[in-house]
Amino acid sequence: MSKIKSFEELKQLRKKVLTHMDIREKGDHIEELVEVRVAMATCGIAAGAREVMNIFVNKIADQGLNNIVVTQTDCMGYCYAEPTVEVRVPGKEPVVFGKVDEEKIQKIIDQYIKKGELLDGVIPMTHKEMED
């Protein structure tokens, strides 16, 4: 590391390292963010959930969408439609999408998250969560 020689250089370095803390900063106010939960049970992983998660993370980073955070969850029970993801927009009911692939991920981001439009492949919620 060469010495930082001005306030400007410090600002540049800060911009560069800011992403190191991205996940922690997001976790700090997760309730205000759009949360994308990828189902990561054995069936999900076998159907490609890990790739789905990677694509999500990369697309969000490429497009600089700071209001989205990707987490994982376990089997939601929709094994026929794996990989599945649940998208939680603050203030709205969670929505589950099935048979997610790269194309669909783009649609989820562009149509549902950005514009609030639903798209094909939404799995109707068949259960209530315990705390509800």
Binding site: S6, F7, L10, K11, L13, R14, V17, L18, T19, H20, M21, R24, D28
Partner: peptide, 25 residues
């Protein structure tokens, strides 16, 4: 409990040394 105390870049990412920069300039 938020940053790695041994990593100066994590401190910088949390606006570390920014106050020093501001004060000096």
């Amino acid at each position: 409990g938020f940053v790695n105390p041994n990593n100066i870049e994590e401190y910088i990412a949390r606006n570390g040394y920014y106050a020093l920069g501001k004060v000096l300039t």
